[in-house]
Computed example of a mutant assay.
Amino acid sequence: MAKTFKPGKGYSRKDWDAVADNPALTKEQMSKAMPFADALPELAASIRRGRGPNKAPTKKLVSLRLSGQVIEKYKAGGPGWQSRIDQDLRRINKIK
C-alpha cells in the first residue's frame, strides 16, 4: 500500500515527490543498516546535548496553570511569549 502526501507534516509536496518513488528496503538491506548514532556520531551527539545547564541559573522551572485566553494572547505575539509573561509579572510586582 503506497502512502500519500499529507500537507502540514513538516515537508513540502516537492520534498515528497523527490522521495516518493524510493523502493522499500529489503530485509538484507535492513540487516546492514547502522544505528543513527553510529552512522553520524557528531550529529547524534549535538542533538543529544541539548541546551545544557545554565552557568548562573536565574530562573526556576515551575508548573503554572493559566487560562486559555491568557496563553492565546501571549502566543499570538510570537516567539518569546513565556519571557513576556515573566516581564509583565515582574512589572506588576515591581521586581527589577
Rank of each mutant, 00 (worst) to 15 (best):
A2K: 13
A2V: 13
A2N: 14
K3M: 14
K3N: 15
F5E: 10
F5W: 09
K6N: 09
P7Q: 05
G8Y: 03
K9L: 10
K9M: 14
Y11S: 09
S12H: 06
R13Y: 08
R13T: 07
K14T: 11
K14A: 11
K14F: 03
D15W: 05
W16T: 01
D17M: 07
A18H: 06
A18T: 06
V19L: 11
D21N: 12
P23K: 03
P23H: 01
P23C: 00
P23A: 01
P23M: 04
L25E: 10
T26W: 04
K27H: 08
E28H: 05
E28F: 02
S31Q: 06
K32D: 04
K32G: 04
A33R: 06
M34N: 05
M34W: 03
P35L: 08
F36A: 05
A37I: 00
D38Q: 08
D38R: 00
L40V: 06
E42F: 03
E42Y: 00
L43T: 02
L43K: 09
L43E: 11
S46M: 10
I47D: 10
R48C: 02
R49V: 04
R49W: 01
G50V: 00
G50N: 04
G50F: 03
G52K: 04
G52C: 04
P53A: 14
P53K: 14
N54H: 15
K55S: 12
A56I: 09
T58H: 12
T58M: 13
K59S: 15
K59D: 13
K59N: 14
K60H: 08
K60E: 15
L61K: 11
L61A: 13
L61M: 14
V62L: 08
V62F: 01
S63E: 13
S63L: 11
S63T: 12
L64S: 01
L64T: 02
R65H: 09
R65S: 12
L66V: 05
G68A: 11
G68W: 02
G68C: 06
V70S: 13
V70C: 14
I71H: 06
I71Y: 04
E72F: 10
E72H: 10
E72G: 12
Y74Q: 08
Y74A: 04
K75A: 12
K75I: 04
K75Y: 07
A76G: 13
A76V: 05
A76W: 09
G77K: 12
G77S: 13
G77Y: 07
G77F: 12
G78S: 05
P79Q: 14
P79G: 10
W81R: 00
Q82D: 12
Q82H: 13
Q82I: 05
S83K: 10
S83Y: 11
S83D: 15
S83A: 12
R84Q: 04
R84H: 03
R84K: 08
I85A: 01
I85P: 04
I85V: 08
D86V: 13
D86Q: 12
D88T: 03
D88N: 07
L89D: 00
R90W: 02
R90D: 08
R90L: 01
N93T: 07
N93Q: 11
N93P: 05
K94N: 14
K94R: 15
K94C: 07
I95D: 03
I95P: 09
K96P: 15
K96M: 12
K96Q: 15
